[in-house]
Simulated scan of single mutants.
Amino acid sequence: MKKTLLIVILSLFVSVNMWAQDEAAEKDQPVGAAFENGTLIDAQTSYIPSVKSLEFVIQHKFGPIDNGDAAFDLFGLYAAGANVRLALNYVPAKNLQLGIGVTKLNLYTDLNAKWTVLEQTEKNTVPVFVTVLGNAAIDGRPKDDFGGLNNYENPLDTFEFRGSDRYSYFAQLLIGRKFSDALSLQAGVSFSHANLVAQYHDHDRVGLHFNGRLKFSPQSSFIFSYDAPLKIDDISEQHSGWNANNAPGWDGPYHPKASLKFGIEVSTYTHAFQMYVGNANGILPQYDMMNNMNDPFEGLAIGFTITRLWMF
Results as ranks from 00 to 15, higher is better:
F161P: 02
P155D: 13
R177C: 02
S217P: 09
L183D: 01
I175Y: 00
V197K: 00
D165M: 03
I175N: 12
Y167T: 05
H209L: 12
G176F: 05
P155A: 08
E160F: 10
F161G: 02
A182V: 11
V189F: 03
S190M: 02
R213E: 07
R177Q: 14
F210P: 04
F159S: 10
A198E: 13
Y200L: 12
Y167D: 01
A182F: 12
E160L: 14
G207M: 00
V197A: 12
L156E: 13
S184A: 14
A187N: 06
S221Q: 06
F159T: 07
Q199S: 12
S180Q: 12
E153A: 13
Y200P: 01
A194I: 11
Y167V: 04
F159G: 03
G188P: 08
F161C: 00
D157Y: 08
V197E: 09
S217V: 11
A171W: 01
S192F: 03
S221A: 12
Q172F: 07
S220N: 15
R177P: 08
V189Q: 03
L156Q: 14
G163W: 03
L174W: 06
L185T: 15
L183A: 03
F210S: 12
D204S: 02
L196I: 11
D202N: 15
F170L: 03
A171C: 09
F210H: 00
D165F: 06
F210E: 08
H201R: 07
N211G: 05
G163H: 05
P155Q: 14
S190F: 07
S192P: 06
L208K: 08
S168K: 01
V189T: 08
D204I: 12
V189P: 01
P155S: 08
L196A: 10
Y167S: 00
G212V: 11
G163V: 11
L208Y: 11
L183C: 09
L185W: 01
F210D: 07
P218R: 15
H201N: 13
D204M: 10
H201W: 04
G207Y: 03
S220E: 15
R162G: 13
S168R: 03
S220Q: 14
A194F: 12
R177Y: 04
E153R: 07
F170T: 06
I175H: 13
G212Q: 08
Y169D: 05
L214C: 07
Q186W: 04
F170C: 10
D181A: 07
S221E: 05
L183F: 15
F191V: 14
P155C: 05
Y169Q: 09
L156R: 08
N154K: 05
S180C: 09
V206T: 08
L156A: 13
T158D: 06
P155H: 00
S184D: 05
F170G: 00
Y167E: 09
R162T: 04
K215Q: 00
L174A: 04
S168L: 05
F179L: 12
S221T: 06
L196W: 10
F210M: 03
N154A: 08
V206G: 04
G207A: 10
R162M: 07
L208W: 03
Y152M: 13
G163D: 15
S190V: 00
A187I: 07
D202H: 02
A194H: 02
S217D: 07
Y152Q: 15
K178I: 06
E160K: 15
S220D: 15
A194M: 13
